[in-house]
Simulated scan of single mutants.
Amino acid sequence: MAIKNYTVEGMTCEHCVSSVKEEVGEVAGVSAVDVTLETGSVQVTGEGFTDEAVEAAVTEAGYKVVS
């Protein structure tokens, strides 16, 4: 089981959090997504997912991974 952390910019409200959780949660291999609005932190847990797939999901939600 892998746990990776990402910083996402552009999230300003709970709707933003929901959008990111929903999109990233659909990535193959992701079992859990925790988003902290105040810090822009997104913690992804799972097995077999890639950074590229997570970044693409965040972009699809309308935001940007900055680290």
Results as ranks from 00 to 15, higher is better:
residue 59 T to N: 06
residue 19 S to H: 06
residue 16 C to P: 04
residue 51 D to V: 09
residue 40 G to T: 09
residue 20 V to L: 11
residue 20 V to I: 14
residue 58 V to A: 08
residue 19 S to P: 00
residue 49 F to T: 02
residue 24 V to M: 08
residue 58 V to C: 10
residue 49 F to Q: 05
residue 47 E to C: 00
residue 54 V to I: 05
residue 49 F to S: 01
residue 23 E to D: 03
residue 56 A to P: 10
residue 26 E to M: 06
residue 39 T to E: 08
residue 23 E to W: 01
residue 37 L to Y: 06
residue 53 A to Q: 13
residue 33 V to D: 11
residue 42 V to W: 09
residue 27 V to A: 09
residue 29 G to E: 02
residue 47 E to L: 00
residue 47 E to Q: 01
residue 56 A to D: 09
residue 21 K to Y: 07
residue 24 V to E: 07
residue 22 E to A: 02
residue 52 E to M: 07
residue 42 V to R: 10
residue 44 V to R: 03
residue 48 G to P: 03
residue 35 V to F: 05
residue 20 V to N: 11
residue 56 A to W: 10
residue 28 A to H: 05
residue 19 S to E: 09
residue 27 V to L: 15
residue 34 D to E: 10
residue 16 C to I: 14
residue 29 G to H: 03
residue 22 E to W: 00
residue 14 E to P: 07
residue 54 V to L: 03
residue 46 G to R: 02
residue 28 A to F: 05
residue 26 E to C: 01
residue 36 T to A: 11
residue 56 A to G: 14
residue 15 H to Q: 14
residue 40 G to M: 12
residue 44 V to L: 08
residue 46 G to Q: 02
residue 39 T to A: 13
residue 58 V to D: 05
residue 16 C to R: 04
residue 31 S to G: 04
residue 23 E to M: 07
residue 17 V to D: 00
residue 35 V to Y: 07
residue 55 E to G: 08
residue 54 V to E: 07
residue 31 S to F: 00
residue 29 G to R: 00
residue 23 E to A: 15
residue 40 G to F: 11
residue 18 S to G: 12
residue 26 E to G: 08
residue 43 Q to A: 15
residue 21 K to E: 15
residue 43 Q to G: 02
residue 51 D to N: 14
residue 50 T to E: 12
residue 22 E to V: 01
residue 45 T to I: 04
residue 15 H to E: 15
residue 44 V to Q: 03
residue 54 V to C: 12
residue 53 A to I: 11
residue 14 E to S: 15
residue 31 S to Y: 01
residue 32 A to Q: 07
residue 35 V to L: 13
residue 36 T to D: 11
residue 52 E to S: 11
residue 48 G to N: 04
residue 53 A to E: 07
residue 30 V to M: 08
residue 40 G to D: 13
residue 44 V to P: 12
residue 25 G to F: 01
residue 51 D to M: 06
residue 16 C to V: 14
residue 45 T to R: 04
residue 33 V to P: 10
residue 58 V to T: 06
residue 34 D to H: 09
residue 48 G to R: 03
residue 56 A to Y: 09
residue 19 S to Y: 01
residue 27 V to D: 09
residue 41 S to T: 13
residue 46 G to D: 02
residue 31 S to E: 12
residue 16 C to Y: 13
residue 40 G to N: 12
residue 20 V to C: 15
residue 28 A to W: 04
residue 44 V to I: 13
residue 42 V to A: 05
residue 43 Q to N: 12
residue 19 S to V: 00
residue 52 E to F: 05
residue 29 G to V: 00
residue 57 A to M: 04
residue 54 V to N: 08
residue 58 V to I: 11
residue 58 V to Q: 10
residue 47 E to K: 01
residue 52 E to L: 11
residue 26 E to F: 02
residue 39 T to N: 15
residue 37 L to G: 06
residue 55 E to V: 11
residue 23 E to C: 05
residue 31 S to T: 08
residue 40 G to V: 14
residue 47 E to Y: 02
residue 21 K to W: 06
residue 35 V to E: 15
residue 28 A to I: 07
residue 21 K to Q: 13
residue 57 A to P: 05
residue 25 G to Y: 02
residue 18 S to I: 00
residue 53 A to W: 09
residue 47 E to G: 02
residue 41 S to R: 13
residue 35 V to I: 05
residue 27 V to T: 04
residue 48 G to E: 02
residue 39 T to H: 09
residue 56 A to H: 06
residue 19 S to T: 01
residue 50 T to K: 08
